[in-house]
Measured scan of single mutants.
Amino acid sequence: VTLFVALYDYEARTEDDLSFHKGSKFQILNSSEGDWWEARSLTTGETGYIPSNYVAPV
């Protein structure tokens, strides 16, 4: 499992996005959609889309 960590805070703009804070960790579920990845937050357990340029591999 590849884990990613948030580099910045992000406020969701749609109900499909995940809001998160810098330092939040994610499991990436689908990275084939270009700049928006489907991810599960390891902090909240919620699933949604995150901007790929806001995260980096742990």
Rank of each mutant, 00 (worst) to 15 (best):
G23K: 01
T47V: 15
V1K: 11
D35M: 11
R40Q: 10
T44I: 02
S24P: 01
I50A: 00
Y8C: 14
A39R: 00
K22T: 08
F20V: 01
H21K: 15
D16P: 05
T43N: 10
A56K: 10
T47W: 09
S32H: 11
Y8K: 08
Y49F: 13
Y10I: 01
G23C: 06
T2R: 11
L3Y: 12
V58G: 05
D9T: 06
F26Q: 00
V58A: 10
L7V: 07
K22A: 12
K22I: 09
Q27I: 15
E33P: 10
Y54I: 06
D9M: 03
G45Q: 06
Y10C: 04
S19G: 07
I50F: 01
A56M: 11
V5C: 07
E38C: 15
L7W: 04
N30M: 07
G34H: 12
Y8E: 07
Y10V: 01
I28M: 04
V1A: 12
Q27W: 14
R40D: 03
G34M: 11
F26E: 00
S31E: 09
L7A: 02
S52E: 04
D17W: 11
S19C: 05
D35R: 08
S32F: 10
G48A: 03
V1Y: 14
S52L: 04
I50R: 00
L18A: 01
T43W: 07
S41T: 05
I28D: 00
S52T: 06
E33N: 15
V1R: 09
L3V: 14
I28Y: 02
F20K: 00
V1M: 13
E33M: 14
R40E: 07
A6W: 01
T2V: 13
L18T: 03
L7M: 09
G23M: 03
Y10F: 09
D16R: 15
R13H: 10
A12F: 02
A12L: 01
Y54N: 03
G34R: 12
S52Y: 08
S41Y: 06
T2G: 12
G45F: 06
Q27N: 06
D16Q: 14
E15F: 10
G34C: 11
S31R: 12
Y10P: 00
N53D: 10
F20M: 05
E38K: 11
E33H: 14
G23L: 03
G48D: 00
L42K: 03
T44Y: 03
G23S: 03
D17T: 15
N30W: 07
Y8W: 12
Y10W: 08
D17M: 14
G45K: 05
H21A: 13
E38A: 07
P57A: 10
I50T: 00
Y54E: 01
I50D: 01
G45Y: 06
A12D: 02
D9C: 07
S24A: 14
Y49D: 02
Q27D: 07
T44L: 03
Y10T: 00
Y8D: 06
S24Q: 15
P57E: 09
V5S: 04
V58K: 04
A6G: 04
G45V: 02
S52W: 08
D35G: 12
G48F: 04
Y54H: 08
E15L: 11
E11D: 10
L18F: 11
Y10G: 00
D9V: 02
H21T: 15
I50H: 02
F4Y: 15
T2A: 12
Y10H: 05
D17N: 11
W37Q: 03
E15V: 11
P51H: 07
F4L: 04
G45N: 08
I50Q: 00
E33V: 11
